[in-house]
Design a protein around this nucleic acid. Structure first.
Length: 336
DNA sequence: CATCCACCGGAACTTAGGGTTC
DNA sequence: GAACCCTAAGTTCCGGTGGATG
């Protein structure tokens, strides 16, 4: 059933990309000065999730590396490495410059100094989910390092810009900006066909079934591939030769629940308590929520900390926050 | 329509926990 | 082993916001 599970994984970067020629070309153009040994333009890729931003960034850089030997690349997921220290550490670590650095004790300035002293080949740093950084100064840091070029990836340009100070903003205005739109059903089907062809046995899934997946995924390729992966796994377990429609329909809600489950697992006990309360109550006003939280946990944190936790839950799309002051309510996100 | 006040979120500060240096 | 450095997490403080209320 499954011939090559790798191509069904989220982080897989295909050898050829489908339906993103224009975007790929613009990103290539921004990076092309590297071919002449010049620093590349900063690129800013925006668009909703699952539209191929990360994939195109990695694909374009790897294609560039096929043409020019001496280029390094570092991928940093800012969601996981959200502090200035961790993000810088991640880059140095990837470049193999951290052997004698011990996480806590080394000052950030030391990390910066090392990056300044770096004299290896030019390095393209992909900062994924850059809007998740809690300190945007790292962009400024990297701007001052001529050997480093940046590809920034974010959902919404306006929200990212709102958080930048003037100096970085003005520099980013000259960046090559590439916006990605949601995939159409046809485009998603083409992507799925591509993956099914190299990942599954022939005849494992019908084109018509791929159309159902594409439709359910609402333009999000990550969701679409997740559904296909779940259905294929199910078929594998059942030792079936093909994916049945029943397996398919089971896999659709599963694909979405999977993302949520993973997010919930990363919560601290206190954050989890807040989520549980909202999951039970559905919707609460700030005072009621905080009272329920105080009743539930030992040694409750202050309300200010709880507000930070709630922002975190919202970022994970586990809850929705509405209203800005007295009209504020917290609502659990429920959608199969 | 002024004033109230629950709530928000930025910023400065504190504390805990680690490591280094001499 | 004391003095010092770092980060991360949490707290304290506080000005701003905008529905509610008389």
């Amino acid at each position: 059933m499954i011939v090559d599970a790798r191509v069904l994984r989220d982080e897989f970067v295909p050898r050829e990309v489908v339906h993103r020629d224009a975007e790929t070309n613009r990103l290539s153009a921004a990076l092309s000065p590297l071919l002449d040994g010049e620093p590349a333009e900063t690129a800013l890729l925006t668009g909703p999730s699952g539209v191929g931003k990360t994939c195109i960034a990695q694909y374009t850089v790897s294609r560039l590396r096929e043409r020019v030997l001496d280029i390094e690349t570092q991928y940093v997921n800012c969601w996981q490495n959200y502090s200035r220290f961790r993000a810088l550490y991640r880059i140095l670590d990837g470049l193999g410059q951290t052997i004698d650095i011990h996480r806590q004790s080394t000052p950030r300035d030391e990390l910066l100094e090392r990056l300044e002293r770096y004299d290896g080949p030019p390095c393209v740093v992909i900062l994924d989910e850059v809007d998740q950084l809690e300190d945007m100064r790292i962009l400024y840091d990297l701007y001052h390092l001529p050997r480093f070029s940046m590809i920034l990836i974010a959902n919404r340009e306006e929200e990212l810009f709102a958080r930048l100070d003037d100096r970085i903003q003005s520099r980013l205005h000259t960046a090559e900006r590439v916006h990605f739109d949601r995939y159409s059903v046809d485009e998603l089907v083409a992507i799925l066909e591509d993956r099914a062809e190299s990942g599954l046995t022939t005849g494992a899934v019908a084109r018509e079934q791929l159309a159902i997946i594409a439709d359910a995924a609402a333009g999000d390729a990550r969701v679409a591939i997740g559904i296909l992966r779940n259905a294929a796994r199910q078929a594998q377990r059942a030792e079936s030769r093909a994916i049945t429609y029943e397996m398919l329909h089971e896999a659709i809600p599963e694909g979405r629940a999977e993302v949520r489950r993973k997010s919930i697992e990363t919560l601290t006990p206190h954050q989890r308590a807040l989520y549980d309360i909202l999951a039970e109550e559905g919707e609460l006003e700030p005072a009621d929520l905080y009272a329920a939280y105080q009743a539930r946990v030992d040694e409750p944190k202050t309300d200010r900390t709880v507000r930070n936790y709630l922002q975190k839950l919202a970022q994970y799309n586990l809850i929705t926050i509405t209203g800005t002051s007295r009209d504020r309510t917290y609502v659990v996100e429920r959608r199969e």
